[in-house]
Lab assay of single mutants.
Amino acid sequence: NNDALSPAIRRLLAEWNLDASAIKGTGVGGRLTREDVEKHLAKA
């Protein structure tokens, strides 16, 4: 759900053309954090 994404995370996902549903969020309530996105990018 994009409503739970911060503007910074939305921008990062758009910049790298990533799908938020493909990344497991570790923040409060399962929210994506910058670290989650960076770890996903490191694996790719």
Rank of each mutant, 00 (worst) to 15 (best):
N1P: 13
N1G: 13
N1R: 12
N2T: 13
N2H: 13
N2K: 12
N2Q: 12
N2P: 11
N2G: 10
D3L: 09
D3G: 11
D3Q: 12
D3H: 11
D3S: 10
D3Y: 00
D3K: 10
D3V: 09
D3T: 11
D3A: 10
D3E: 12
A4N: 14
A4G: 14
A4P: 11
A4E: 14
A4Y: 15
A4F: 15
A4C: 13
L5G: 04
L5C: 13
S6N: 07
S6Q: 06
S6D: 15
S6G: 09
S6Y: 04
S6K: 04
S6H: 08
S6F: 05
S6P: 10
S6I: 05
S6T: 11
P7N: 11
P7W: 03
P7A: 14
P7H: 10
A8L: 09
A8W: 04
A8G: 09
A8M: 07
A8P: 05
A8C: 15
A8Q: 10
I9V: 12
I9G: 01
I9M: 09
I9Q: 03
R10W: 02
R10F: 01
R10M: 05
R10S: 08
R10H: 06
R11W: 08
R11Y: 06
R11H: 12
R11T: 10
R11D: 14
R11P: 01
L12F: 05
L12G: 00
L12V: 04
L12H: 02
L12P: 00
L12N: 00
L13N: 00
L13M: 04
L13A: 00
L13D: 02
L13Q: 00
L13P: 00
L13S: 00
L13K: 00
L13F: 02
L13Y: 00
L13R: 00
L13H: 00
A14M: 13
A14Y: 11
A14V: 10
A14C: 15
A14T: 09
A14G: 10
A14H: 12
A14K: 11
E15S: 04
E15H: 10
E15Q: 07
E15M: 08
E15F: 08
E15L: 08
E15D: 15
E15G: 03
E15W: 08
E15N: 05
N17Q: 12
N17P: 06
N17G: 15
N17H: 11
N17I: 04
N17T: 03
L18F: 05
L18K: 05
L18H: 08
L18N: 05
L18W: 05
L18Y: 05
D19T: 06
D19S: 06
D19R: 02
D19W: 05
D19F: 01
D19H: 05
D19I: 07
D19C: 10
A20D: 07
A20H: 05
A20N: 02
S21H: 06
S21M: 09
S21T: 13
S21V: 09
S21L: 08
S21N: 11
S21A: 12
S21K: 10
S21D: 11
A22R: 06
A22K: 11
A22G: 07
I23H: 00
I23A: 01
I23T: 01
I23Y: 00
I23K: 01
K24Q: 14
K24E: 14
K24C: 14
K24R: 10
K24N: 10
K24Y: 10
K24A: 11
G25W: 01
G25H: 07
G25F: 00
T26C: 05
T26R: 02
T26Q: 03
T26P: 02
T26G: 03
G27R: 01
G27A: 04
G27W: 01
G27Q: 02
G27H: 02
V28H: 09
V28Y: 06
V28A: 11
V28G: 07
V28W: 05
V28D: 12
V28M: 09
V28K: 11
V28L: 12
V28Q: 11
V28C: 12
G29Q: 08
G29H: 07
G29D: 13
G29S: 07
G29K: 06
G29E: 10
G29P: 03
G30F: 00
G30I: 03
G30W: 00
R31A: 14
R31E: 11
R31W: 06
R31S: 14
R31K: 13
L32R: 01
L32S: 01
T33D: 02
T33C: 06
T33Q: 04
T33N: 03
T33P: 01
T33R: 06
R34F: 15
R34Y: 15
R34L: 15
R34S: 09
R34I: 15
R34W: 15
R34H: 10
R34K: 13
R34D: 10
E35S: 09
E35G: 09
E35D: 10
E35C: 13
E35W: 08
D36G: 00
D36Y: 01
D36C: 04
D36F: 02
D36H: 02
D36Q: 01
V37P: 00
V37N: 00
V37D: 01
V37I: 14
V37Y: 02
V37W: 02
E38W: 14
E38N: 06
E38Q: 09
K39T: 10
K39A: 14
K39V: 08
K39D: 09
K39N: 13
H40A: 15
H40Q: 06
H40D: 02
H40T: 06
H40I: 11
H40M: 09
H40C: 06
H40L: 10
L41A: 07
L41H: 15
L41I: 15
L41G: 04
L41E: 03
L41V: 10
L41F: 07
A42M: 11
A42N: 09
A42E: 11
A42G: 09
A42C: 14
A42P: 06
A42T: 09
A42W: 06
K43C: 14
K43N: 12
K43G: 12
K43R: 12
K43I: 13
K43T: 11
K43A: 13
A44F: 13
A44W: 11
A44K: 13
A44I: 15
